[in-house]
Design a protein around this nucleic acid. Structure first.
Ligand SMILES: [Mn+2]
Ligand SMILES: [Mn+2]
Ligand SMILES: [Zn+2]
Ligand SMILES: [Zn+2]
Lengths: 131, 131
DNA sequence: ATTAGTAATCGGAATGATTACGAATAAAGG
DNA sequence: CCTTTATTCGTAATCATTCCGATTACTAAT
């Protein structure tokens, strides 16, 4: 499942760099489009495989709540999201302390809670303006 | 998008009935397998279409957090879920009052928060026993 | 009860995001 | 350099879900 050693490739480090410099929670194909000019022979499968590797290295998180395609987040500190059901955009939220919630909930269940996915769904500020 | 009038069909009402009598958050294909003996000519597309119709009627909710396939929940009262990353099972949680959270969060954001998706991820009680 | 209108069904094909493959390439250590 | 093998690329396969057109069957009006 996991490889023994990881190598540094231009493609992988650029994927992580792009993710670290945006707060837009990109999709795999958006990353592909961004990188295609710089890597003309880039394969979409390479983007997906590297996203998977970066995830198992703990350098990013895959977001699957929301639409039909996954989004990726290099902000690994536990935080809530706002997902706009109109335009699909995702915003970071910092008003709830997720780590505290994990502690609290673990005392209330027989299960072992490891992390929390918290998403607020609704209409974003931009989409509200357009009405 | 939406049809003008809905008709009562045996297939649709049975789907809702099954969902109302389970707390296991079934998948479309699980519902299909359950109903196949009673409806030998049932089509999987019929299950999906009816789940969509029941959702737009507000009689169930689609759960997309977690794995690669959707699950369905006829418990429409806002509640949190525990999702086991080992076996994929989903449990209802009632320790957090979601409606109160919606109120609170709306005062803290410029967006319009309509609902909250809250999932605890981890290892369930059953899977913990097997270790 | 008959009829007309049109949702809903079924079966299969299409879609779209993601994953898997195998041959060629390139990172990394000696 | 040389060797090893992780990684790439291009393409094919997968899998859940949606779409299609012909047929069926609700429902309300006659
Ligand atoms: Mn984020
Ligand atoms: Mn539930
Ligand atoms: Zn929006
Ligand atoms: Zn489990």
């Amino acid at each position: 499942m996991k490889s023994e050693t990881y190598r540094n490739t231009k493609q992988r480090s650029r994927i992580l760099e792009i993710l670290c410099h945006t707060d837009s929670h990109p999709t795999a194909s958006w990353l592909y489009d961004q990188m295609k000019p710089e890597f003309p022979s880039l394969s979409l499968g390479t983007v997906y495989r590297n996203l998977g590797i970066l995830e198992e290295q703990g350098l990013l998180k895959k977001l699957r709540s929301g639409s039909t395609f996954d989004r990726y987040d290099a902000n690994t500190y536990p935080h809530a999201h706002f997902c706009c059901t109109e335009c699909g955009s995702i915003y970071d939220m910092r008003d709830v302390e997720i780590p505290d919630m994990v502690q609290t909930v673990n005392k209330q269940t027989p299960h072992n809670v490891l992390e929390i996915n918290l998403s607020y769904m609704g209409i974003c500020e931009e989409c509200l303006k357009k009405k």
